[in-house]
Simulated scan of single mutants.
Amino acid sequence: MRPFEPVLYPFALLYDGITRLRNKLFDIGSKRSVVFEIPTVVVGNLALGGTGKTPMVEFIIERLSQHYEIATLSRGYGRKTTGVILADQEASAQNIGDEPFQIFTKYGEKVHVAVGEQRIMAIPQIIMEHPSTDLILLDDAFQHRYIKGDFNILLTTFQKPFFEDKVVPLGTLREHRKGAGRAQAVVVTKCPKDLSEEKKKWYKENIKKYTAPGTPVLFAGLKYGEPYEIQPNGRVLGKDVILLTGIADTKVLKESLKGQYNLKHALEFADHHKYTEEDAGKISKAFQAYGGEGTVILTTEKDMVKLKDRKFAQLLEEIPIFAIPVKVDFDHKDETLLMDMVQKSIIEKGYKREV
């Protein structure tokens, strides 16, 4: 036990009680969950911080967008606007949030991207403006019980699984571990490539203490793609990189870079960090201090969409900045099982098209 835990315990107990009561009211029907005619798939987690929700949403988009007209809906964390917004050519990280803007930047021609604090109000607006939409992906909506998802995917990281975590402020859980019982599938994310079957069995045994009978536990790693230059200037990516991040956890990313790149320096900001001109100065100083012939700044796609703001135009011209894409990496068996279950949930709503 950490020395300060006894001080936090009463607050954790109070928070746990409030969230349990809220969930109980939904379970018994005192609080109402709305079921929409259009199929809805929820991607979420029990914990605060990064569990890989955006890569999972992108994974589903890539698997299903050729067969279904998809819309994504999230709260739009960190945006400077309020209300329901459907992304268009005026969209930016400032008005819809960094992760929705990342999805819009990558898949805007394939999907409709919407944000709204009150998702229950946003879905009718999506349908009104895009009536041919036949699947909505609800990003980070596991605790948003005013909408009853048709299929709930719960993510938990290999590094900090929910069964070893505690509710805030003692830990990072938004609700008690028993909330996992609402999931139709649990995916352990950010798994190492050499994960043994014995270790998988141990994770499954611990997770299934909290899930409904028959709920599958799947495993996925992260696969980093070929970095690309944010502002194409014909520069070449070499071995020497300065890492620039504003994400929840950099451990997995750093580990993946070890064998391929020479990490000269890491400039790390908090998750969802809003970059400023002052930050641009820090980036420039870091490049001057640690850069050299062939050195580039390597960042995530989540950070990239914020750095493309006009106020950083000069920085992008002067300093070679590359973004590294990340994708969910399932083995074939787990990927097939998950997508078959998602497909089944869509068909059960009356959408008969086979994938």
Rank of each mutant, 00 (worst) to 15 (best):
F11C: 11
I18E: 03
T19W: 06
K24E: 09
G29Q: 11
R32F: 07
V34H: 12
V41Q: 08
A47G: 08
F59Y: 02
E62D: 14
E69G: 11
E69M: 13
T72M: 10
G78S: 12
T81W: 07
T81L: 01
T82M: 12
L86M: 04
A87T: 00
D88S: 12
D88L: 07
S92W: 04
A93Y: 03
A93V: 04
E99C: 13
E99W: 05
F101N: 04
Q102A: 07
Q102W: 03
Q102G: 02
Q102L: 02
I103T: 02
G108P: 15
R119Y: 10
R119F: 05
I123P: 00
E129M: 12
E129A: 09
D134W: 02
L135A: 00
L137S: 04
F142T: 00
I147Q: 13
L155K: 04
Q159I: 05
K160R: 15
D165P: 04
R177A: 05
G179L: 01
G181Q: 06
R182T: 06
S196E: 14
K199W: 11
T211L: 01
P216M: 10
G221W: 01
E229R: 07
T250G: 05
L257K: 11
K264P: 10
A270W: 08
D271K: 08
H272K: 04
H272S: 00
K274R: 05
E278Q: 12
K282F: 09
A286I: 09
G292R: 01
V296R: 10
M304W: 14
R310S: 15
K311I: 11
F312E: 13
I319H: 06
A323T: 06
T336N: 09
L337T: 05
K344Q: 15
S345A: 15
E354V: 15
